[in-house]
Computed example of a mutant assay.
Amino acid sequence: MKKTVLALGLALMTAGSAYATGFTNGGFESGNLSGWTGGGGTWTGSPAAPANPSIFNGGPSNNTIMTGGVDPITGANRVYSGNYSVRANDNISNYSVSTLRQTVTNYTDNAIYFAWDAVLQGSHGLTDSDYFSLTLTDDTTHTTIVNRAYSSAGAIGGGASGVTWTSFGGWLSSGWIVESINLADLNAIGHDFTLTLLASDCPYGGHAGYVYLDGFGARIPPTDVPEPGSLALLGLGIAGLASLRKRKNAA
């Protein structure tokens, strides 16, 4: 019976965090940005978008750990799975740029998943609007596997498939998009990978852009599964087994 209780406890405790295998704090469930590298700064003028995230390495980042609740503009959940996500940049228009990055080496799982939700305020043209870019690169082969780049005026380059933008009173949102990469199909199991995210206001200080990120890991992130629920289920399971044991002993 003790072995059964222990096995049940371990299974339930790991169920909510299994998707983060291979990454440090891939679902942000530590409640902080451990494992991630942030950067940032300001963007003025009209360079061709998207700006190179490496320009902002080491600068002051504007990345915020988010808890439950909804986005004030779109009404979408701020967290895709678990208790936490991260928001890069914010809805204040002040020329700000924020980046977030993580590299994993010798990744041996069969797939990579992550979820994102971008919110952009309608503004100018492709090269001078608020925007975001997201890339997943295979550092072993020096190839780009995922390449998303959007301004509030439309998609920049490729990567537009699978995204339908919805208008919210002058703002545009992608809604939560789950990226799914089968590494076996790419013959990329065991390679090194880097995820890089950038969110930017427009370069004139009049329009804002930000993006949520969650569930970066080896298992598809379940939608809105709170960790406390898993812990409560664990408690009920152990209590039930204990009660069953008492009834058997009494019999």
Rank of each mutant, 00 (worst) to 15 (best):
A160M: 06
L10T: 14
A115K: 01
G22E: 08
N187T: 08
A155M: 04
P50Y: 07
G175V: 04
L197T: 13
F114D: 05
G217S: 09
L197G: 07
V178K: 02
Y80K: 13
A250H: 12
T105A: 12
G169W: 02
I55C: 00
L136R: 04
G9W: 02
A250E: 14
G237P: 09
S161V: 08
S200G: 03
F168I: 00
N63L: 09
K2F: 13
T164S: 13
D117S: 14
P53C: 05
Q121T: 04
R247E: 11
Q102F: 09
S54Y: 10
G162I: 09
A149G: 09
W176E: 03
D109A: 15
I112W: 04
S173L: 05
Y204V: 10
T14V: 15
R148L: 12
N110A: 15
A153H: 09
T194H: 05
L120E: 03
W36C: 10
L126E: 04
N63C: 05
G58K: 04
I220M: 11
R247D: 04
G26I: 09
A51L: 11
T99C: 03
P228C: 11
T37Y: 02
G31M: 12
R78D: 00
A20K: 05
Y210G: 06
P203F: 06
T144G: 07
N57F: 08
A20G: 13
L183N: 02
F132E: 06
S30V: 10
I220K: 12
Y210A: 08
N32F: 04
L197F: 14
P50I: 08
D139Q: 13
L236R: 03
V178Q: 07
A149S: 15
F23Y: 13
Y113L: 04
A48Q: 14
L136H: 08
A184F: 00
A88L: 14
D71K: 06
W43Y: 13
T103G: 01
A184I: 11
T223D: 02
V5Q: 14
A51K: 01
I73H: 05
L197E: 08
R78P: 00
N32R: 03
R78E: 10
L197C: 07
N83Y: 02
V119H: 07
K2T: 14
P60Q: 12
Y19W: 02
Y80T: 05
N25K: 12
M66Y: 07
G215K: 01
T143S: 15
T105R: 13
L213A: 12
A251I: 10
N147Y: 03
S243A: 15
V225T: 15
L233F: 13
T166G: 02
V97K: 06
C202A: 14
S152K: 03
Y95Q: 08
L186P: 01
N147D: 15
N106G: 15
V178S: 03
G229M: 13
P203H: 06
G9V: 12
L120C: 04
L6S: 14
G16K: 00
N106T: 14
L136Y: 01
